[in-house]
Simulated scan of single mutants.
Amino acid sequence: MKNIIHSRLPVLMVTISTALLFSACQPANEDTNVAEKEAVASDQNTVADTPSMDAHAGHDMSDDTMTDMHQAYNESMTHMHDEMMAGMKYNDPDAAFAQGMLGHHIGAVDMAEIQLKYGADEEMLQLAQNVIDTQKVEIEQMQSWLASNPDATEPMTDTKAVQKAYADGMDAMHSEMMAAIADTNPDRAFARGMLSHHIGAVNMATVELKYGKNEEMRKLAQAIIDAQQPEIEQMQDWLAKNKA
């Protein structure tokens, strides 16, 4: 039981962070459940005025299924969400995209490395290596761009709209990825998780194309869509052939 509580703590922290972002972008919910507030207060020493998202709802993992692989995915998601949360609070749409996508890419590389360690399917292993090779280059590009393009000091015209769009996308992606990485088959867990992850990246890139102004970041957003859409279709086809 102690191990289960320890393994779920990173997910709880992700849940808390997501709730805090929603409280910044939307009106507070006056009817928040008292028990949820107490849970947040005990783990975060603060109270979020929005309901937290139960990351394991409908797919709790037992002692037998909470393997080293699942723990690695949990830790990866926690790190990814922390990084993405930082970007989603930015004022400038281009800087928000770069910082958020940077964390998103780092999460993709972590997931791909987990697949290389635990997976067995040749197609998914190759896809994982392709993700690493492609996204590490883009990670360096975004790190370099952010070093020369700090966030705006004040909110801009589209700041709230961008934050709302990213928050909605993050909510959907998190729920789907939590269900995916609970899969006991390593190759399916990777394919399902990375599928949701890629869809999230395309959604983020679409937001950048709608609100962003910087030419380099807009080109990167389009490149992400062009590269990841075929991989989305590849994973969808693979999953159709490799059902549980």
Rank of each mutant, 00 (worst) to 15 (best):
H104F: 06
H104P: 00
H105M: 14
H105R: 11
H105S: 14
I106L: 14
A108G: 14
D110I: 04
M111I: 04
M111G: 06
M111R: 03
E113V: 10
E113S: 15
I114Q: 01
I114C: 06
Q115N: 10
L116P: 00
K117M: 12
K117S: 09
K117A: 14
A120V: 03
A120L: 03
D121S: 06
D121E: 13
D121L: 10
D121W: 05
E122I: 12
E122S: 15
E123D: 12
E123I: 09
M124H: 00
L125V: 02
L125C: 01
L125P: 00
L125F: 01
Q126L: 10
A128C: 08
A128S: 14
Q129Y: 06
I132D: 02
I132Y: 01
D133K: 05
T134C: 01
T134Y: 04
T134E: 14
Q135E: 15
V137P: 00
V137G: 07
V137L: 14
V137R: 13
E138H: 10
E138Y: 02
E138N: 07
I139A: 09
E140M: 11
Q141F: 14
Q141V: 04
M142S: 00
Q143F: 01
W145C: 04
W145M: 07
W145V: 02
L146A: 08
S148G: 11
N149R: 05
P150Y: 10
P150V: 07
D151L: 05
D151W: 05
A152Q: 11
T153Y: 03
T153I: 08
P155F: 13
P155N: 07
T157H: 12
T157Q: 10
D158I: 01
D158F: 08
T159L: 11
K160A: 15
A161I: 13
A161L: 15
V162M: 04
V162G: 00
Q163C: 01
A165P: 02
A165Q: 06
D168K: 14
G169R: 01
G169I: 04
M170T: 08
M170Q: 12
D171I: 13
A172N: 13
M173V: 05
M173F: 03
H174C: 00
H174W: 01
H174E: 03
S175I: 11
S175W: 05
E176Y: 06
E176C: 03
M177A: 07
M178Q: 09
M178R: 06
M178F: 12
M178V: 07
M178H: 09
A179V: 13
A180D: 09
I181Y: 14
A182I: 06
D183L: 04
D183Q: 14
D183Y: 02
T184W: 05
T184F: 08
N185D: 15
N185A: 12
D187S: 09
